[in-house]
Simulated assay, not measured.
Amino acid sequence: MAKRVLVVEDNELNLKLFCDLLRAHDFVTEPVRDGREAVGRAKAFEPDLVVMDIQLPHVSGLELIGQMKRDPRLRAIPIMAVTAYAGRDDEERIRAAGANAYVSKPISVMRFVQEVRALVPAEGAA
Protein backbone atom coordinates (compact mmCIF):
# COMPACT_ATOMS: atom_id res chain seq x y z
CA MET A 1 0.00 0.00 0.00
CA ALA A 2 1.39 3.41 -0.99
CA LYS A 3 2.54 5.77 1.73
CA ARG A 4 0.46 8.91 2.20
CA VAL A 5 1.81 12.46 2.42
CA LEU A 6 -0.13 15.56 3.44
CA VAL A 7 1.43 18.60 1.74
CA VAL A 8 0.67 21.95 3.40
CA GLU A 9 1.81 24.75 1.07
CA ASP A 10 0.09 27.99 0.02
CA ASN A 11 2.22 28.63 -3.08
CA GLU A 12 0.59 26.84 -6.03
CA LEU A 13 3.85 26.20 -7.91
CA ASN A 14 5.56 24.73 -4.84
CA LEU A 15 2.47 22.69 -4.00
CA LYS A 16 2.39 21.23 -7.52
CA LEU A 17 6.15 20.56 -7.48
CA PHE A 18 6.05 18.76 -4.11
CA CYS A 19 2.98 16.69 -5.02
CA ASP A 20 4.35 15.78 -8.48
CA LEU A 21 7.71 14.76 -6.98
CA LEU A 22 6.04 12.63 -4.32
CA ARG A 23 3.68 10.98 -6.81
CA ALA A 24 6.63 10.20 -9.09
CA HIS A 25 8.10 8.28 -6.14
CA ASP A 26 4.88 6.32 -5.54
CA PHE A 27 3.40 8.37 -2.70
CA VAL A 28 -0.27 9.30 -2.46
CA THR A 29 -0.57 13.03 -1.78
CA GLU A 30 -3.20 15.26 -0.25
CA PRO A 31 -2.62 18.97 -0.99
CA VAL A 32 -3.66 21.59 1.57
CA ARG A 33 -3.47 25.23 0.49
CA ASP A 34 -4.86 26.81 3.67
CA GLY A 35 -3.04 26.06 6.92
CA ARG A 36 -6.27 26.51 8.86
CA GLU A 37 -7.45 23.22 7.31
CA ALA A 38 -4.25 21.27 7.95
CA VAL A 39 -5.02 19.63 11.31
CA GLY A 40 -8.52 18.53 10.27
CA ARG A 41 -7.28 17.21 6.93
CA ALA A 42 -4.46 15.33 8.70
CA LYS A 43 -6.99 13.59 10.93
CA ALA A 44 -9.16 12.63 7.95
CA PHE A 45 -6.32 11.64 5.57
CA GLU A 46 -4.14 9.84 8.17
CA PRO A 47 -0.82 10.56 6.44
CA ASP A 48 2.46 8.74 6.97
CA LEU A 49 4.25 12.11 6.62
CA VAL A 50 3.38 15.82 6.64
CA VAL A 51 5.35 18.23 4.42
CA MET A 52 4.81 21.63 6.05
CA ASP A 53 5.57 25.09 4.71
CA ILE A 54 6.51 27.39 7.61
CA GLN A 55 5.43 30.71 6.09
CA LEU A 56 1.68 30.39 5.65
CA PRO A 57 -1.03 33.05 5.74
CA HIS A 58 -3.46 33.00 8.69
CA VAL A 59 -1.47 30.49 10.80
CA SER A 60 2.25 29.73 10.85
CA GLY A 61 3.64 26.32 10.08
CA LEU A 62 5.35 26.39 13.49
CA GLU A 63 1.94 26.74 15.17
CA LEU A 64 0.56 23.88 13.08
CA ILE A 65 3.51 21.64 13.96
CA GLY A 66 2.85 22.36 17.64
CA GLN A 67 -0.86 21.58 17.27
CA MET A 68 -0.11 18.29 15.52
CA LYS A 69 2.51 17.23 18.06
CA ARG A 70 0.08 17.92 20.92
CA ASP A 71 -2.71 15.89 19.31
CA PRO A 72 -2.68 12.22 20.39
CA ARG A 73 -3.89 11.09 16.93
CA LEU A 74 -1.24 13.05 15.04
CA ARG A 75 1.83 13.30 17.28
CA ALA A 76 3.57 10.21 15.88
CA ILE A 77 3.38 11.43 12.27
CA PRO A 78 6.77 12.76 11.14
CA ILE A 79 6.81 16.34 9.85
CA MET A 80 9.24 17.72 7.29
CA ALA A 81 9.39 21.51 7.34
CA VAL A 82 10.05 23.25 4.02
CA THR A 83 10.85 26.94 4.22
CA ALA A 84 12.73 29.87 2.75
CA TYR A 85 14.09 30.54 6.24
CA ALA A 86 17.59 29.15 6.06
CA GLY A 87 19.55 30.34 9.10
CA ARG A 88 20.87 28.07 11.83
CA ASP A 89 18.59 29.70 14.40
CA ASP A 90 15.62 29.08 12.12
CA GLU A 91 16.41 25.39 11.80
CA GLU A 92 16.81 25.04 15.56
CA ARG A 93 13.49 26.85 16.14
CA ILE A 94 11.71 24.64 13.59
CA ARG A 95 13.13 21.44 15.08
CA ALA A 96 12.30 22.65 18.60
CA ALA A 97 8.67 23.08 17.47
CA GLY A 98 8.62 19.37 16.63
CA ALA A 99 9.67 19.05 12.99
CA ASN A 100 11.58 15.84 12.28
CA ALA A 101 13.39 17.21 9.23
CA TYR A 102 14.05 20.52 7.53
CA VAL A 103 14.58 21.41 3.87
CA SER A 104 15.24 24.98 2.72
CA LYS A 105 13.76 26.59 -0.38
CA PRO A 106 14.53 26.62 -3.16
CA ILE A 107 14.64 22.87 -2.69
CA SER A 108 17.12 20.44 -4.11
CA VAL A 109 14.94 17.75 -5.68
CA MET A 110 17.37 14.99 -4.66
CA ARG A 111 17.61 16.23 -1.06
CA PHE A 112 13.82 16.60 -0.81
CA VAL A 113 13.28 12.99 -1.89
CA GLN A 114 16.13 11.73 0.35
CA GLU A 115 14.59 13.47 3.39
CA VAL A 116 11.14 12.06 2.60
CA ARG A 117 12.58 8.53 2.20
CA ALA A 118 14.49 8.88 5.47
CA LEU A 119 11.25 9.70 7.30
CA VAL A 120 9.00 7.28 5.40
CA PRO A 121 10.86 4.28 4.00
CA ALA A 122 9.38 2.63 0.95
CA GLU A 123 7.28 -0.50 1.41
CA GLY A 124 9.51 -3.50 1.88
CA ALA A 125 12.58 -1.40 2.71
CA ALA A 126 14.56 -2.56 5.71
Rank of each mutant, 00 (worst) to 15 (best):
3 K>R: 15
79 I>P: 00
105 K>H: 08
117 R>W: 11
50 V>E: 03
109 V>R: 13
18 F>A: 05
15 L>N: 11
122 A>C: 05
5 V>S: 02
80 M>E: 09
22 L>P: 11
58 H>S: 10
41 R>F: 00
96 A>L: 08
82 V>F: 01
5 V>H: 00
61 G>E: 07
52 M>T: 08
2 A>F: 10
59 V>L: 10
116 V>F: 08
22 L>R: 01
84 A>N: 00
53 D>W: 03
123 E>A: 14
67 Q>Y: 11
27 F>A: 08
41 R>W: 01
53 D>N: 12
104 S>W: 00
85 Y>F: 13
79 I>D: 02
109 V>W: 02
90 D>V: 09
113 V>Q: 06
17 L>K: 02
50 V>N: 02
65 I>N: 01
43 K>S: 01
94 I>D: 01
103 V>A: 14
113 V>W: 10
47 P>Q: 08
44 A>C: 02
61 G>P: 09
52 M>D: 09
100 N>D: 15
8 V>C: 07
58 H>M: 12
98 G>N: 07
59 V>R: 06
6 L>R: 07
75 R>C: 11
119 L>Q: 12
8 V>Y: 08
101 A>D: 15
29 T>I: 05
65 I>T: 15
9 E>H: 03
13 L>W: 11
39 V>M: 04
1 M>W: 06
64 L>S: 10
19 C>I: 03
120 V>F: 03
8 V>W: 09
25 H>I: 04
50 V>K: 06
125 A>L: 01
83 T>H: 05
113 V>M: 15
97 A>N: 05
2 A>W: 03
86 A>V: 05
11 N>E: 14
